[in-house]
């Protein structure tokens, strides 16, 4: 057999197939979305009124249920009035792909409704800052603590039981408390992201630190390494590459706390934009904003992965996601 079978168990496919499948993984959902949006007989539960006819409350452009439309049409047929005209449409909360694609640009070019409100790029920048500070502060304490707990049993026994308990407390539950303590601006939001990330972070980092091959520590000891040189010259360099990978995953988790965090106190950032646009029923903008979060997330991750390959030249295999 010269090439890998498509369904070979745990065998890597050739490079071209992998690339192709990667593209497909994005194209498939897009295709389903397009199918539902552009093929009129797939789903389309509403009727968009083109000509109201003699139905008193129909207006052009209005969306009504197909059932209602049929009922009114049937009633008019009996009385002999002018029939309403309409075409099948999807609910307003499912815009078509092209509308969302357009919103990607118009959302940035449309000025805010009121002068004191931020533009979209300003909202996004605020969100990124909240994430950054939440994650940065969490890492500042969580990473060293995790490394200590993974290296010394005394720290592990002292910290981990409490952290293990605390990580089950949902971060949003601290919202009201955070506002009471830290005010209504960015500080409580950063605190929520901190709480959501920190406790997982300590446990993940300590677990990774514990994965270090103990034989390396033994080898180092027979070479004369003691206490602190064991920590700084063996443990940390030995696990740093895996810690970097953990941090990438944890950063992804931090993003998932963003929306909740931004709803706390005065709504802000991209969440403010999303709720605002949903209120005006600009669902194309809502989808565009949600996707922007995804795009920012995956772009940072890909950049960090690439950076990781540069910093850690000794790694055995290409960075795993």
């Amino acid at each position: 057999m010269t090439r890998t079978h498509w369904f070979a168990v745990r065998k890597e496919l050739p490079h071209r197939s992998r690339l192709w499948l990667g593209v497909m993984s994005f194209l498939l959902p897009l295709a389903i979305w397009s199918l539902v949006s552009y093929v009129p007989f797939v789903w389309h539960p509403k009727m968009e009124i083109i000509d109201p006819g003699d139905v008193s409350y129909f207006r052009p452009g209005m969306l009504v249920d197909r059932k209602v439309f049929a009922k009114e049409s049937a009633a008019l047929q009996n009385t002999g009035g002018a029939l309403p005209q309409g075409k099948r449409a999807n609910p307003i909360y499912l815009p078509a792909p092209h509308a969302v694609a357009k919103a990607f640009f118009t959302a940035f070019t449309t000025p805010p409704k009121r002068r004191n409100e931020p533009w979209l790029h300003e909202s996004l920048w605020q969100s990124i800052q909240v994430i950054f500070w939440g994650f940065f502060l969490s890492s500042l304490i969580g990473v060293p603590l995790g490394i200590l707990a993974g290296t010394y049993d005394v720290f592990s026994r002292l910290f981990e039981p409490f952290i293990e308990f605390f990580r089950y407390l949902p971060a949003p539950a601290f919202g009201a408390l955070a506002v009471a303590i830290l005010g209504i601006h960015d500080a409580p939001k950063i605190a929520i992201i901190f709480i959501g990330t920190f406790f997982q972070q300590v446990l993940v980092i300590s677990n990774t630190t514990r994965q270090l091959d103990p034989a390396l520590l033994e080898a180092a000891m027979t070479l004369g390494a003691k206490r602190f040189s064991l920590l700084f010259k063996v443990v940390i360099p030995g696990v740093i590459q895996q810690l970097y990978r953990d941090q990438r995953i944890l950063l992804g988790w931090a993003w998932t706390y963003l929306i909740v965090a931004e709803l706390i106190g005065s709504s802000s950032g991209i969440t403010w934009f999303i709720t605002q646009q949903a209120r005006y029923k600009n669902f194309d903008n809502v989808y565009a904003a949600i996707m922007m979060i995804g795009i920012i997330g995956i772009t940072t991750d890909l950049l960090l992965a690439r950076l990781g390959r540069r910093i850690f030249p000794w790694q055995r295999q290409p960075a795993q996601v």
Binding site: T222, L223, P237
Partner: peptide, 20 residues
């Protein structure tokens, strides 16, 4: 008393530091 550099050791599993 404890490991020290007066006794060098070579292990079966190489134990080279992969980052160096």
């Amino acid at each position: 008393n404890g490991p020290g550099s007066d006794r060098g050791m070579v292990f079966q599993g190489y134990t080279l530091f992969p980052w160096l």
